[in-house]
């Protein structure tokens, strides 16, 4: 299998002096793998995801995503990545739910009929078709999470990064989204990396579980 992500021994210092180090074994993800990163609040889960995305440039350590350093050559890889951030308000851009989900496809030059088909399908799959003409600002946190996920999945990314994707969802939606992610993973051999502090969620979906504790990364299964 192809290795998509490898991270080893990274350390990042935030402007306020907070030092986040992730030492121990290497973190790696192969094509089609579903990986959970488990850890308490402040353990460095989001820092690890942002490093993989190239938003954070670590002071130390090695990082490779699709064979390149993401903080230097992000333009080569970002079109292969879908992401859902913890605070989804920051990533919802379109004036309506439909426009937001179509945003990336329009930027990457897809034709309008392709966009319409893809957006309609993903809205149906996620069960938010009834929200298509709504203004995202007025929707609930859980609904916004689903929109952000739809915006990421519509591009059929090779790598899907999810930062606490199930926070704010009701139990029924949680199960539905988890099953949808499993289906998408099987359908497109999509690599999924997600952070969570819920062991049962990690256990339900992940092939590999990494734990982050006290600046050390370990593999659980």
């Amino acid at each position: 299998m192809n290795e998509i992500v490898r991270v080893s021994g990274i350390r990042h210092v935030f402007p306020d002096g907070t030092n986040v180090g992730i030492k121990g074994i290497d973190f790696s993800a192969e094509q089609g793998e579903k990986i959970a990163i488990l850890g308490h609040n402040g353990s460095g889960k989001s820092t690890l995801l942002n490093t993989i995305l190239g938003i954070i440039t670590p002071l130390e350590g090695e990082i490779s995503v699709f064979g390149v350093n993401p903080s230097r050559e992000y333009s080569k890889i970002w079109h292969k990545i879908g992401v859902v951030f913890q605070n989804v308000d920051e990533q919802i851009i379109g004036p309506t739910v439909w426009d937001d989900i179509a945003f990336s496809m329009r930027n990457y030059g897809y034709k309008e009929d392709q966009i319409n088909d893809a957006v309609e399908n993903i809205l149906m799959e996620i069960g938010i078709y009834h929200l298509k003409d709504k203004i995202p600002h007025y929707l609930s946190g859980g609904e916004k999470k689903k929109i952000a996920l739809a915006g990421a999945l519509v591009m059929k990314p090779q790598l899907l990064l999810l930062d606490e994707p199930l926070d704010g969802l009701d139990p029924q939606s949680k199960t539905y989204i988890l099953n949808l992610l499993i289906n998408k993973n099987q359908e497109f051999k999509m690599t999924i990396i997600f952070t969570t502090h819920d062991y049962s969620t990690a256990h339900y979906i992940a092939d590999t579980i990494y734990t982050l504790e006290g600046g050390k990364i370990n593999i659980k299964r």
């Binding site: 995305l53 992000y74 970002w78 079109h79 990545i81 992401v83 951030f85 920051e90 990533q91 851009i93 426009d99 179509a102 945003f103 990336s104 329009r106 930027n107 990457y108 309008e112 966009i115 915006g151």
Partner: peptide, 14 residues
């Protein structure tokens, strides 16, 4: 986030 979502300095409204 805009860059990740494919924004290249131009908004496409469809």
């Amino acid at each position: 986030i805009l860059k990740i979502r494919g924004y290249k300095g131009k908004i496409y409204s469809g």
